[in-house]
Design a protein around this nucleic acid. Structure first.
Lengths: 254, 254
DNA sequence: CCGATTTTGTGCACGCATTCACAAAGTCGT
DNA sequence: ACGACTTTGTGAATGCGTGCACAAAATCGG
């Protein structure tokens, strides 16, 4: 008993890649490609073919051995799995530079999402038009969110306002939040928050850039730097924060 | 021999969290807090205290047992590890809605990053001012990037132009790229690309939202849906892509 | 100076994710 | 109709990340 095809439990990591596959497939479809092998699709999506196959196998057995995957059919299956066969109403809170950019983002990402309303707290913004939407007073958030059946909230406010806005979105019944503000939001466990964080990404890039720069330096100098250089922070260019070391004497630490 | 304090090899996952810790610490510092325990900081950063301690232990032994971490000192150490004690020149390519939003983003993320130049391909944009920068012709990309010693490139162009722009950034010597365009970029292995992708994030949210909606539906109905419902895609509301099923007959597939 | 208390740093076990490698399953040419 | 070939789907091995639980280290009160 129990055929259980695609009943449950796709790994998070796989889900996070499905949108990438979907885009690659759509691009192939636009080029008139009707069939694609896991190898080709994996290249287009920038992943390992085995990983791609395992990911897809979680949604069911939609390929044909010896041939590959039918592009349109796979697009449909992934879309369905991701919940893109229905429309999702999105509310954007904060129409600063970023909020405007999001609101004007043509077609709002791919199909499946529709901007339902915009909010701001600034009286000078309220009532103005952004794209083909009027900016609402954030005071009306709960009412309008319920009216328009908004399912996803996007926070594009300053960090200081983010938690407060988040609380109100949650109070209005929203359980999917995309946060662009540089803050950790606290929400009840029934609510899912994803964050998009420019500054974090830049800092990660900086880390690796510095690492590259240092290893190239070490490759040039014949001398293998001892730990002294690392233990004296003043050796760096911009002393942003004089380290005011903590009381701690000769602790070489094990 | 070999004290090797912080010589090498911090796990990627830890690095990705350091910026979050840094922000939490800066916020604490602003509130006048001078010392923090792993427990408190973990709450502020939204992670498990043990994970936090393990992450920090990769940079060295900067805590004091029985007390906690000195906020300023830890800020400094994390900043140094991330390479934020020096400035990084950033180039933004594409001054559409998103590019403008990024360019105007106050102080550009946190300290440590500085916008060095903006580029666009559209003649109507070239020469105009965005923030306190003039938009350069993308034709001059290589020259200006080298002149200004740009280390990080941000791609905020339409998807169609992204790979081409990326190739030119790489040709100009840039090895850290932040990609906002919805495309998989292909780069030599010496170059690091990170992507920020609105549409992917929304789709992941939609997946979980759909899952919640379905499981609530199942909780209401007493009937446990058999697989038939899942095998007939036309049961969904918005038939975006009539599934045109592939030739395949009764394959129940184990 | 010592013992109670706090909190770090980390060994260890567990679970998830990735990748290899191969059998199963299909296609295509003859 | 059959055999060579292609490509999927997946068992199994390996590696990485997480979190518990505890010993080591430091403070503080008496």
């Amino acid at each position: 008993m129990r055929p259980r095809n695609t009943t449950d439990g796709i790994p998070e990591a796989s889900i996070a890649r499905l949108p990438v596959y979907l885009r690659a497939l759509q691009s192939l479809a636009d080029q008139g490609v009707t069939t694609v092998s896991s190898h080709q699709l994996a290249i287009a999506a920038g992943v390992n073919p085995a990983k791609l196959r395992k990911d897809l196998s979680h949604l069911g057995s939609y390929g044909t051995r010896g041939v590959g995957y039918e592009v349109d059919y796979l697009i449909y299956q992934i879309s369905r799995e991701l919940g893109l066969t229905q429309d999702w109403a999105v509310a954007i809170v904060g129409v600063g530079n970023l909020g405007r950019a999001l609101a004007n983002y043509g077609g709002f990402a791919s199909r499946g999402f529709q901007i339902a309303c915009l909010f701001d707290a600034d009286p000078r913004q309220i009532g103005t038009r952004v794209g083909h939407h009027v900016v609402h007073d954030i005071a009306d958030l709960e009412r309008i969110v319920v009216e328009k059946r908004v399912a996803i909230g996007v926070i594009a406010t300053p960090a200081a306002a983010a938690q407060q806005v988040c609380d109100r979105l949650v109070a209005a019944g929203i359980r999917s939040i995309l946060n662009f503000a540089p803050t950790v939001l606290s929400v009840p466990p029934t609510v899912e928050v994803r964050k998009v964080d420019l500054s974090t990404e830049l800092q990660i890039l900086a880390f690796h850039a510095q690492r590259r720069a240092l290893s190239e330096l070490e490759a040039l100098d014949v001398i293998d730097y001892p730990d002294i250089e690392r233990l004296d922070p003043r050796a760096v260019s911009r002393a942003d924060e004089p380290p005011d070391r903590p009381r701690r004497v000769a602790g070489v630490s094990r």
